[in-house]
């Protein structure tokens, strides 16, 4: 069973000629089939955790370890991490002009699966996934994220999640900016992947709203660059009622 282990992770960024520590000792274990919600106020370092796991060059790991089934993730390049089974659904997906969605998806699937998917089954697979996400077929011919609405970008991220079937899926504020219908469609997509039991999910969110659609096994409160409290789904209810105030007092958050 695939396991992502994060141990005492410290991460800093360079800003205004100064080094700023954002993550201050994160410990977390995510196993295949589990869903962990990471909740926290703005600036608590949630997105930094997501991007650090994916290998974004902006972030410097100063200490700690991240392993996937014992393999050192931090030693891998960004594309190696993806091929090892780490997927990051981004909060702000990037526009790539000149590259069509269909070309992008096929190139990505070829890289992840290690061989080009058979054309006939691939076309069907993409078409069905797109239908389930209420995406118009014309989407495939558009350039990656170019001119996409916020909701279209998120659906496109979840489409990739469904097609790439990662071991560990990190969803960075996938719910932000979505109306209720889009949130439901996107959540259903995530749930289909979860139901396979093959994917461990790290759901990063500011709001409890998405947890009505995606039921987590574990809830962690993120504050001040580390996990401040962990619990079961009931912790989300507590946050819904009381907010993050208890965790942000005393200046623990950024």
């Amino acid at each position: 069973m695939a396991t992502l282990e994060i141990r005492d992770l410290h991460v800093s960024v360079e800003a205004d000629n100064a080094t700023k520590e954002i993550l201050k000792g994160v410990d977390l274990t995510v196993k295949q089939g589990e869903t962990h919600a990471i909740m926290g106020p703005n600036g608590s370092g949630k997105s930094t955790l997501a991007y650090s796991l994916a290998g974004h060059p902006k972030y410097t790991i100063t200490s700690g370890t991240v392993t996937l089934d014992g393999e050192d993730v931090l030693e891998m390049s960004v594309d190696e991490r993806a091929r090892a089974g780490v997927f990051l659904a981004m909060q702000y997906p990037v526009e790539v002009p000149g590259v069509s969605v269909s070309n992008f998806l096929r190139t990505s699937a070829t890289a992840i699966r290690g061989e080009a998917p058979k054309l006939r089954t691939w076309v069907k697979e993409v078409k069905e996934s797109m239908e389930r996400l209420n995406m118009d077929p014309s989407f495939a011919e558009r350039n990656v994220n170019e001119g996409f609405s916020g909701g279209e970008k998120k659906r496109h991220e979840i489409l990739q999640l469904e097609l790439l079937k990662p071991k560990i899926a990190i969803l960075d504020e996938t719910d932000s900016g979505l109306d209720v219908d889009a949130l439901r469609i996107v959540s259903e997509g995530v749930n289909r992947v979860r139901e396979s039991g093959d994917t461990g999910t790290l759901l990063i969110t500011h709001y409890t709203r998405i947890l009505r659609y995606i039921k987590p096994d574990h809830v962690h409160v993120f504050a001040g660059g580390r996990i401040a409290e962990s619990g079961g789904p009931e912790l989300a209810d507590k946050l819904e009622a009381e907010g993050y105030e208890a965790y942000t007092k005393g200046g623990t958050a950024q």
Partner: peptide, 28 residues
């Protein structure tokens, strides 16, 4: 830019191929 490169690499596509994909698309 680095963000486009990161996005494509985060989908398993090696850097050289990501560059190729973008330039080919640009001229296609």
């Amino acid at each position: 830019d680095d963000e486009q490169l990161f996005y494509l690499m985060a989908r398993g596509i090696p850097a050289a191929e990501a560059r190729r994909l973008v330039v080919r698309g640009f001229f296609a």
